[in-house]
Design a protein around this nucleic acid. Structure first.
Length: 682
DNA sequence: ATGGCACCAGAA
DNA sequence: TCTGGTGCCATA
């Protein structure tokens, strides 16, 4: 680091000084430049510098100091345009950590942290206040001036302590749906120390117009919003508003964790369990984990909020590494909705919506209230299920269910790669009614239209919200009461607040329950809890019906009882037994190539190198197995899974093996990617 | 990113 | 054997 550049300058000005510089976009390495004397007092990490590069000039960022060049001649920096670093020092530090933790070049990390064009081109003053598209949603719940409940008060005061002192302290805010987590965030931020900023991460900003609306109501123009819907220049402008201290609260999706505050007083990660915090390409970071690291570097509290915390976060709380804050009660006071599980194994009716659910819907609509229908249709594959006993064929090595592959007509394990023939009869009970489960939101919509021809339906899934602002419009359609029933995928489970919802119907809870990874049970539990939490948020209680082929599944049982802790205990036990996270750490090494045989050979070479590097460690190496979606964008992909009790050896093994592979020719015709803490195998 | 260069398929 | 397309490498 260059912290003592000025010092060096005063006493050793005749000695050459070199800095490592990185460029935005593409350039994945750092380059060494010499610093002319006139810049030495000023230049440091995060500073923007104009340098000669490829027979031209361009702006880059100083990363740190560099060793004197060997075997090449370093060129001089041409100009240092800014007085103070454009990128805050703590962000540079965070970039350094991410580079080593996620095994990505520093230049790539930095390029991803900054909005495009921040460092390049001319230095322009931002044009005032671009507006994002999340405002203007009517709040139909009666909130006005809320007095915090005692649980809220307690959470707020607990967080404000370390915030005032500026010390790192991680919290899990476990708050039931409707228990007022947003209010805790807002009031905690109100206590922000002078001169520091707050970062609020939400899974997907376009899906949380109500939350953003409430923040804007409280903080007005002190809010900066970052999300993918903004144009490049809007993003840049918001970034500069944060950098220049105009905004003190930055709300956004995962990349908002890089908000360029000098001082951060609080970081909030809302719905911290949500999978969309994981970036699945380029630098494969997890926004929640980076948030915790940033809080550590900045010295501030970080609040991980959820009604259904991830196993990882809650385990950290159980182990005492994080503090647990709980909001057990709903603010409305009439408790969680009653949940009924309906066993549809024996049903003769081929309709998705069974009579009980039809009846409840009729009652609900008659009472002048609205309903939500949820079905989580999973993408590319279906699973096989026995109509007699509910058995789902699973892998013998991995204790996860097998996925049916349409084109190969085979059952396949996505973790170890083993293929098998689909059985003709149920291996459990010998029954012959093995069935592929099918049907999604459109089927549900069609059935509802036939059952309730006079009721306006709103369908919300990836297909209906492609247009900008469409989510907000559809939500408004329901919230205003114009639409009677909302049908959709997990989008309808996200944190919106429509007080008049009297009924939630989970049409088929089995999707995802047997998904091809160890988090399947956790995801279903989360989504059922979340969607159930949409019912009865207003003046009247609500009701939830869950239709399923697996009525005894613990995810559904505990979700129906609103029992997070019960679920956690069972799930944690299972994870520990199979040594999956949070009881182990995973890394996924994937090799892709245009030619199948080259990718395959590359993966074998990677496996060999990893195995050699892992000698004498406790790192277990599985695979290579073809990726679940074997060919993506014309490239064949093979996965190698690394498992270890501890992260350190995991990193060491990867670093050693990757270095060796880079020096050999083993990876010609293919490329290797590393994913630390992978979310899945796709 | 982007220009330079080695390497391989189709035309002379 | 010549030439254009393409993938790989270096840029300080």
């Amino acid at each position: 680091m260059l912290g003592n550049a000025q010092f060096t300058h005063q006493y050793l000005s005749n000695i050459d000084m070199y800095v490592a510089v990185t460029f935005e976009l593409g350039a994945e390495r750092t380059f060494t430049y010499s610093v002319p004397e006139r810049f030495r007092a000023r230049v440091g990490p995060g500073h923007r510098v104009l340098v000669p590069f490829m027979r031209g000039e361009r702006y880059g960022f100083v990363v740190g100091d560099a060793d004197p060049p060997e075997g090449f001649a370093a060129k001089d920096i041409i100009d240092v345009p800014d007085e103070s670093p454009l990128v805050p020092a703590t962000l540079m530090e965070l970039a350094g950590w991410m580079s080593s933790y996620y095994h990505s070049p520093l230049g790539m990390v930095l390029g991803m942290m900054l909005p495009p064009g921040v460092g390049a081109g001319k230095v322009s003053k931002p044009r005032r206040d671009v507006r994002e598209d999340t405002e203007g949603l009517t709040d139909y719940s009666k909130k006005s001036e809320i007095t915090p409940t005692s649980a809220q008060e307690k959470a707020i005061s607990t967080v404000i302590g370390p915030m005032a002192k500026g010390v790192f302290s991680p919290f899990v805010l476990h708050g039931a749906t409707g228990s007022g987590k947003t209010e805790v965030y807002i009031r905690s931020i109100t206590g922000l120390p002078e001169g520091s900023g707050a970062i609020v991460l939400v899974p997907e900003i376009s899906l949380t117009p109500q939350l953003v609306g409430r923040f804007r109501e409280r903080f007005g123009d002190r809010i900066a919003v970052m999300h993918s819907g903004l144009t490049e220049s809007q993003r840049r402008a918001e970034w500069r508003r944060v950098r220049e201290g105009e905004a003190s609260v930055c709300i956004g999706a995962r990349s908002a964790v890089f908000a360029p505050f000098d001082k951060v007083g609080l970081i909030v990660v809302d719905e911290e369990h949500d999978g969309s915090y994981k970036q699945e390409e380029g630098v494969r970071y997890n926004g929640r984990d980076v948030a915790v690291m940033r809080a550590k570097l900045q010295g501030c509290p970080v609040m991980l909020g959820s009604a259904t915390p991830s196993l990882e976060s809650y385990h950290n709380a159980m182990e005492g590494r994080y503090s647990l804050l709980e909001l057990p009660e709903r603010v409305t006071g009439h408790g969680q909705p009653r949940v009924r599980i309906i066993d549809i194994r024996e049903r003769k009716e081929k309709d998705l919506i069974q009579p009980e659910l039809v009846e409840k819907t009729r009652e609900c609509l008659k009472a002048g209230r609205q309903a939500i229908f949820f079905i989580n249709r999973r993408g590319f594959s279906d699973f096989l299920i026995c109509r007699d006993c509910g058995h789902v064929p699973g892998c013998t090595n991995c204790s996860i269910s097998l996925t049916f592959h349409q084109c190969a007509k085979k059952l396949s394990c996505h973790w170890c790669g083993t293929d098998s023939e689909p059985p003709g009869l149920c291996p459990e009970c010998g029954g012959d009614k093995l069935k592929l489960i099918g049907g999604g939101t459109e089927k549900v919509e069609e059935e509802l239209a036939a059952l309730f021809p006079d009721v306006k339906l709103t369908r919300m899934d990836r297909d209906t919200i492609t247009k900008r602002g469409a989510f907000r419009e559809l939500l408004e359609e329901v919230a205003s009461g114009r639409s009677g029933i909302l049908v959709g995928t997990q989008l309808v489970a996200k944190g919106h607040d429509i007080p008049n919802i009297g009924l939630v119907g989970v049409v088929l809870a089995d999707y995802g329950l047997h998904g091809a990874d160890f988090r399947a049970a956790e995801r279903v539990f989360q989504v059922v809890m979340q969607v159930a939490g949409r019912a009865g948020r207003g003046d009247h209680p609500g009701e939830v019906i869950v239709q399923t082929y697996s009525p005894e599944h613990y995810s559904l049982i505990f979700a129906s009882k609103h029992d997070y802790k019960g679920f956690y205990d069972i799930e944690a036990e299972a994870r520990e037994e199979l040594s999956y996270p949070p009881f182990s750490r995973l890394a996924l090494v994937s090799v892709k190539g245009v030619k199948d045989d080259k990718a395959k050979r590359g993966a074998e070479a990677a496996k060999t190198a990893l195995t050699r590097a892992a000698k004498g460690t406790n790192v277990i190496i599985l695979g290579p197995a073809p990726a679940p979606i074997r060919r993506v964008r014309g490239k064949y992909r093979y996965n190698i899974l690394l498992k270890s009790k501890d992260v350190r050896p995991l990193h060491a093994v990867i670093d050693k093996a990757v270095k060796g592979l880079a020096e050999s020719k083993a990876l010609s015709g293919c490329r290797l990617d590393v994913d630390i803490d992978p979310q899945g195998m796709v």
